Computed example of a mutant assay.
Amino acid sequence: SREELEGVLAHELTHIRNRDTLTQAVAGTIAGAITFIGRILTFGALYGPVTRDSRQGPNPFGLLFLIILAPLSATLIQLAISRTREFAADSGAVEITNNPIGLANALQKLEKMSREIPMHGNPAMSPLLIVNPFSTKGLQSLFRTHPSTEERIQRLLTLAQQQQGAPVMAYLSGI
C-alpha cells in the first residue's frame, strides 16, 4: 500500500541521513584491521617468542584468541552495530512519516513473502535486504545483519501506542 511504501522509503532515507553506509564501512574496516593484526601477531607468536627456560613455543591460549576469538568478536560487534542502525532507521522512518503502522505492515508482508518464497542464495547478500530471508535460529541469530522482524514490528507498535495512547494491534493487517 501507499503507507507501506512510504514507510520503507522513509526507512531507507533515514539510512542515508544517518550515514549508515559510512558507519558500516568504518565498522567493517575496524573488524578487518583487528583480524589482520590478529593474524600478524599469530605469526609473531608462532615464530618469535622464547620462554624463560629457552624453549621456543607459543602460548596456545594466546594463539586461540588471536586466530579465532579476535576476528569473531570483531565480526559480532560489526553485526551488532548493523542491527542497531536498523532500529534507528525504523525510528527515523516513523519521524518522517508519523506512521509506524505503515512500516510495521510492510515488514510483516516482506517477512511473510520471504517465508513463502524462500531465498536460496549467498547469506552475504543479507545486508542489502530489508528482512533477512535466511535461517537465523539459535546461535545463527548472532550473525544477523538485521534484527528479527518480530522485534522490529514490536518496537514500531510501541511507538504507535505512544503516539496514539491506545492499543494498536487491531491496526496491523494479519497479526
Rank of each mutant, 00 (worst) to 15 (best):
T14W: 00
L9W: 13
Q161N: 12
L129T: 03
R39Q: 14
F61M: 10
L22W: 09
S114Y: 11
R55H: 09
R152I: 04
L129Y: 08
T29G: 14
F61S: 06
T14A: 05
P49S: 08
L139F: 08
V94C: 04
E151L: 07
Q164N: 12
S82V: 01
R144E: 14
Q108I: 15
G121P: 04
N132L: 04
K112A: 06
F87C: 03
A88G: 05
T14D: 03
L22F: 06
T97Q: 00
E6N: 09
P147R: 00
M113G: 12
L142V: 05
E111C: 06
R85Q: 02
S82Q: 01
L69C: 07
A89Q: 02
L159A: 12
S126K: 02
Q108G: 15
P123T: 10
A166E: 07
L5S: 15
T84K: 13
I68Q: 11
V94Y: 01
I117G: 01
Q108Y: 12
R19G: 07
A124C: 01
L5R: 13
L22C: 07
L156Q: 01
P123C: 08
I81N: 03
A74R: 00
L103Q: 01
F143D: 02
T97W: 04
I77S: 06
V168T: 15
N98L: 05
D53L: 04
T75H: 07
N18C: 05
R115Q: 10
P133L: 09
L76I: 15
T21Y: 11
E6C: 05
I77Y: 13
S1E: 06
K112R: 06
L41V: 13
F43P: 05
N59G: 07
R52Y: 07
Q163A: 13
S141M: 02
P133S: 11
I117M: 12
D20A: 04
P123F: 01
D53M: 04
G44R: 03
T42E: 13
S1D: 04
L41H: 06
L63M: 12
A10Y: 07
L103P: 01
T158Y: 14
V8H: 05
I175Q: 15
A80G: 14
Q154L: 03
L129N: 04
A45W: 06
R152A: 00
A160R: 00
R39M: 13
G32Y: 07
S114R: 12
P60I: 10
T84R: 14
E6S: 10
P127V: 12
A106D: 02
H15Q: 04
M169T: 09
L46V: 12
L46D: 06
A80R: 14
E86L: 03
G28H: 11
H146P: 00
R17A: 12
T158M: 09
G92A: 13
S82M: 08
T21I: 14
S91T: 09
N98Y: 04
H15R: 02
F143A: 03
G102Q: 00
V50E: 00
T149H: 06
R115E: 08
P127R: 04
R144N: 11
Q108N: 14
E4G: 11
G165K: 07
G48L: 14
T149N: 12
G57R: 02
R155P: 08
M169H: 10
L64Q: 13
L69M: 10
E3R: 15
P58V: 02
Q162K: 11
R39W: 14
